[in-house]
Nucleic acid binder design. Structure first.
Length: 486
DNA sequence: AACCTCACG
DNA sequence: ACGTACGTGAGGTTC
């Protein structure tokens, strides 16, 4: 229902005309959990009246009329349509986030201790082998000291003008000296140890057990996504040797299971929706593997002949387009020549001309107005759009092209979260909890006997929360810890 | 506080 | 001639 309201809002209002000063004046800079209630109070009666009315009709004209009526009332209070939309969404959303934080995720501290031991041992071994290889001790954690060792003592080749020791560079040096592998291993082990294991071990018992309560920031990003701090629960390892070990630390409470639901390729679907690119739309409607399809189209091959590596290249190309990358970036990331990268990009825009049109359109609008907007009017002002510095300007343009896509993803997820929470409060109180949001994924803990039913309902809400020109696909899975989610 | 590096979507 | 991807948070070192 909320979705109808919003998509009708999308069509009826000229959102680009909305001034930022207006928003800034009417809303506090940070719409946080604390002051959400304050602001929210003014809107609650209106929201309730709307809902009561909407129960009596499925007539969209009626909804539209109500929306206009509401907008008038909001306007009389000095609020713009964007604020109406954002308040409909953000006030209840603040409560959702607050509930998630309060509940928290339970930890298996015993597993954490095991991992801690393992990593400590491994760190000692690897460190000693590094010293042995080099002939003396130094601080491997120090990029400066490491650079001295690699580039001065060992005279390994420096690529570019900075003596960077980042992973990408080290990978190129692997064959030149045995210490490189060891340093990479050291980095992998100590990263996991210091960033995840140690901080989680420092969490104190709440009596019942160990629970991690992150802090989701609603205003944490300029695209509309949330961020998560203290600790960041949106960057828990998902790949690599230790990912499943770390993930297995996060478990459901007794009698519950962990349930995960994630949108499949949501950013590319939003891109298809905005651009209306016929090839992209067609692929999604047909339920195709989008990266495979891109690889086939760009390389001019039948899909059946696309290898795993080629599909991977298709994926890299898709992300390159999404982020507005040039042939230089693509060639570096895909490990292909500049000419080939150029050729693929040209081929991409020949095939997906609608995407090219979208990019040009987004660019024009951004340069004209100085900001970019998502499908629901979420607005991002971008200072660099008026920069005379070419790099700054290009970066700003990439931001403006990407924002409607990433912002659209965020809008959709926010809507879904509010609707799912409404369902939980109504039908699953104390039996299902939303725990985490990781941009395109939601994680819950659900009473064992309700997992199947609840999963279906969540999937249904997520798929139908907005109507795009392409279908939204959602994968759900469950398990007895976070590593068991697919 | 700035910088480098690296974890995630 | 330059130097490349969008959005984040965090730990460790250096200044």
């Amino acid at each position: 229902m909320l979705s109808h309201l919003l998509s009708s809002g999308k069509k009826s209002y000229d959102l680009p005309s909305i001034a930022f000063e207006f928003v800034a004046k009417a809303l506090p800079d940070k719409l946080d959990k604390g002051d959400a209630n304050k602001i929210g109070k003014a809107f609650i009666e209106i929201v309730d009246a709307l809902k009561a009315q909407m129960k009596n009709t499925e007539n969209s004209e009626y909804v539209e009329k109500w929306f206009e009526f509401l907008v008038d009332r909001f306007k009389s209070r000095g609020l713009t349509p964007y604020e109406v939309v954002s308040n409909f969404l953000d006030i209840p959303l603040a409560r959702v986030l607050s509930r998630m934080e309060k509940r928290g995720v339970t930890l298996r501290r015993d597993r954490l201790i095991e991992i801690d031991k393992l990593l400590s041992k491994e760190t000692v071994i690897v460190t000693e082998r590094i010293y042995e290889e080099i002939g003396h001790e130094f601080n491997v954690n120090s990029p400066k000291q490491l650079a001295d060792v690699l580039f001065t003592e060992l005279s390994l080749p420096v690529s570019g003008r900075k003596r960077s020791t980042r992973e990408e560079i080290l990978n190129e040096l692997k064959s030149l000296h045995p210490v490189i592998e060891l340093v990479l291993r050291y980095r992998e082990v100590t990263k996991i140890h210091s960033t995840y294991v140690k901080p989680l071990m420092a969490i104190e018992s709440e009596g019942e057990g160990f629970v991690v309560h992150t802090d989701f920031k609603m205003t944490g990003s300029s695209s509309g996504r949330f961020s998560s701090i203290n600790p960041n629960m949106q960057n828990i390892p998902a790949r690599g040797e230790f990912a499943s070990k770390i993930r297995s630390v996060f478990v459901p409470r007794k009698g519950f299971k962990i349930v995960g639901a994630d949108y499949s390729q949501i950013e590319f679907r939003v891109m298809a929706d905005i651009s209306l690119d016929s090839a992209l739309v067609e692929d999604f409607i047909k339920g195709k593997d989008i990266h495979m399809s891109t690889a086939a189209r760009v390389m001019g091959k039948p899909e059946g002949e696309i290898t795993k590596d080629e599909r991977n290249l298709g994926k890299t190309i898709n992300f390159a387009i999404l982020f507005g990358q040039t042939k230089y970036g693509l060639s570096r990331l895909a490990g292909i020549s500049g000419e080939l990268a150029q050729q693929y990009i040209e081929e991409y825009f020949k095939t997906y001309s609608g995407v090219g049109n979208y990019i040009n359109r987004a660019k024009e609008i951004a340069l004209k107005y100085g900001y970019a907007q998502s499908m629901f009017g979420r607005t991002r002002h971008i200072a660099g759009l008026s920069s005379r510095n070419r790099n700054m300007l290009n970066a700003a343009i990439r931001e403006a092209v990407n924002m409607p896509i990433q912002g659209g993803e965020a809008d959709i997820m926010r809507l879904a979260m509010v609707e799912i929470d409404e369902m939980i409060q109504k039908k699953y109180r104390d039996r299902a909890y939303m725990l985490l949001q990781i941009h395109d994924e939601l994680i819950f803990e659900v009473k064992e006997e309700l997992v199947e039913e609840f999963s279906e309902k969540v999937k249904d809400i997520m798929k139908n929360v907005v109507k795009l020109n392409v279908p939204l696909e959602v994968n759900v899975s469950s398990g007895s810890n976070m590593s068991e989610l697919k």
